[in-house]
């Protein structure tokens, strides 16, 4: 289920709200969405239904919880991006990223630690 994490803009914004508030009562959720996204009640409910059908969230006893994490989505999007723009090559991605940036020592150390962590 690769496309489980493929979210449209509206879906992503909605998920962000749920991630922040979960577990959240669905009525409460419609209230938040009305304020944050300008959605009417039926719009929120049909979005919940749509995402439940995709297995991304569940709605039990009027309580909405997510089944995927924000990190899952971010990772998926990053993969897609690197794959599409840099032919899946992480080094060329990082090279391009570093070209226009300067890193503080702190940042450089933490990135280095990350890289060490994934090296087999």
């Amino acid at each position: 289920m690769e496309n489980l994490f493929k979210l449209f803009d509206a879906e992503y914004k909605f998920m962000c709200i749920v991630w922040t508030h979960e577990p959240v009562n669905s009525t409460e959720l419609t209230r938040i969405c009305e304020k944050e996204l300008g959605w009417k009640k039926p719009t929120t409910y049909s979005m919940i239904k749509k995402l439940c059908e995709r297995g991304i969230m569940k709605n039990e006893k009027a309580t909405v919880t997510t089944l995927i994490t924000r990190e899952d989505v971010q990772k998926y999007e990053a993969d897609v991006f690197i794959h599409r723009v840099f032919d899946g090559s992480v080094p060329s991605f990082i090279a391009s990223f570093l070209q226009s940036k300067t890193l503080s020592n702190e940042e450089a150390r933490s990135i280095k630690a990350m890289i060490d962590g994934v090296v087999k």
Binding site: A10, E11, E36, L37, G38, W39, T43, M47
Partner: peptide
Amino acid sequence: LRRRVRYATL
């Protein structure tokens, strides 16, 4: 068109 912008966000 209505359907297309249904989930447009504020």
